[in-house]
Simulated assay, not measured.
Amino acid sequence: MSKPNKARYNLETLRKAHADKNGGDAIEFEFEGETFAIAAPGFWPDAAKVALKAGDDIGAATALMGGRYDDFTAKGGRADDVMIVVAAYADEQGIDLGE
């Protein structure tokens, strides 16, 4: 049963505010002359979280890159490189991704 006059949150508005506050919903990085992007924390797909929990860095990197993982690895990129980008972002933002 809902309470009268209770605020209703709009998820799209909350996501936009979160992205604005944290510098966007993606982390861009360059490799071999091409720009790639991964989802920023707070915007990670569930598949990335499941893969990380299972210790599957390749699955996590694939999920975070939203379909560009094959292009990235064709240029010589690795799942560990994606994790390096995530760690650099976390360090720069002063956040602990284990939270």
Rank of each mutant, 00 (worst) to 15 (best):
M1K: 07
M1E: 12
M1P: 08
M1R: 09
M1W: 14
M1A: 07
M1G: 15
S2D: 09
S2P: 09
N5W: 11
K6C: 13
R8N: 08
Y9Q: 13
N10W: 08
N10V: 11
N10I: 14
L11C: 08
E12M: 14
E12L: 13
T13R: 11
R15N: 10
K16M: 09
K16E: 11
A17S: 07
A17R: 09
A17T: 10
A17Y: 02
H18A: 13
H18Q: 09
A19G: 07
A19C: 11
A19L: 04
D20T: 06
D20F: 06
K21A: 15
N22I: 01
N22M: 05
N22F: 07
G23K: 01
G24M: 03
A26P: 00
I27V: 13
E28W: 06
E28M: 04
E30W: 10
F31T: 04
F31I: 05
E32Q: 13
G33T: 06
T35Y: 03
A40W: 00
A40Q: 02
P41W: 00
P41K: 01
G42M: 15
F43K: 02
W44G: 02
W44H: 15
P45Q: 10
P45R: 10
D46M: 14
D46E: 15
D46P: 05
A47V: 09
A47T: 14
A47P: 12
A48H: 04
V50N: 14
L52I: 08
A54V: 04
D56C: 08
D56S: 05
D57P: 00
D57S: 09
A60H: 00
A60D: 01
A61H: 01
A61D: 02
A61G: 12
A61F: 01
T62S: 15
T62M: 09
A63M: 08
A63Y: 01
L64N: 01
M65V: 04
M65E: 03
M65D: 05
G66D: 12
G66K: 09
G67S: 06
R68A: 13
Y69C: 07
D70R: 12
D71M: 08
D71P: 02
F72L: 06
A74C: 03
A74H: 08
K75E: 07
G77A: 03
A79V: 01
A79H: 01
A79N: 01
D80C: 04
D80R: 10
V82H: 00
I84S: 10
V85D: 05
V85F: 05
V86L: 15
A87T: 13
A87D: 15
A88G: 11
A88D: 14
Y89Q: 06
Y89E: 09
D91W: 02
D91Y: 05
Q93V: 10
G94Y: 00
G94A: 09
G94F: 00
I95A: 06
L97S: 13
G98L: 15
G98I: 03
